[in-house]
Design a protein around this nucleic acid. Structure first.
Lengths: 108, 108
DNA sequence: TCATGAGGTAACCGTTTGGTTACGAAAATA
DNA sequence: TATTTTCGTAACCAAACGGTTACCTCATGA
């Protein structure tokens, strides 16, 4: 098993679990009720998320509350942001693609 | 085969290919020489990247030049940026975690 | 004390993944 | 024309994935 953050978020179910837990910490069964698959399947997904630090589990009575650790997504954010100027308007403003360099010097 | 961008970047070799092609478009063999695996293995990875739009391939003589389409990473960037304020200092300054709400009202 | 509910996990299964070797097509070159 | 180079891909393989059912432990509540 590879089990890094990139592999963890590759599965759509696991991304949904992350979204779900971003709103509130939930017991395992509560998580499972949001999906059309059995609890063991969700348990496995949670295991993967736990292994790579994306969730923590707090025991409370007979329930296990799952909490997402969103800061673990920083690695992914950092990696994609290297290339962000290829699609973000913020880093690559529209005007820079329309006005030739010579004209821009005059503007300054 | 699922073949979405999240699954494409799950593999470390494919992430390296993306980094490599971010500098320059390269023929398939040139890509393969950067890795310790056979050309068919790289060819398969390129196929996956091609299928989900992360690279385009331009035929030139007997060579196929691979170009990365970094804007396809926008989907990933968008997804992770939802949660960015959980690790970015810019969006969640240190002071907001230290001063209680009552005190902050006075500050305004 | 006994039944119930929460949840982990083993065993199993079909499909996918990520690699290999072997082969063939097309372009370039001798 | 014959050979070499670039590349795709088929066939194969072991391991990982993503799901299931079955069973177990432990805490709760009647």
């Amino acid at each position: 098993m590879r089990r890094d953050v990139f592999q963890a978020i590759a599965d759509p179910t696991r991304r949904q679990i992350i979204s779900l837990l971003a709103n509130a910490s939930l017991p395992v069964n509560a998580v499972a009720h949001n999906f059309e698959m059995t609890r063991p399947a969700i348990s496995k997904h949670l295991r993967i998320l736990l292994d790579c630090g994306l969730v923590t589990i707090r025991k409370e009575g007979r329930e296990r509350y799952c909490t997402v650790v969103l800061s673990e997504l920083a690695e992914v954010g950092k990696w994609v942001s290297q290339y962000q100027h290829f699609w973000s308007d913020f880093q690559e403003p529209y005007i820079s693609r329309r006005i030739p360099l010579k004209r821009r010097k005059e503007d300054l």
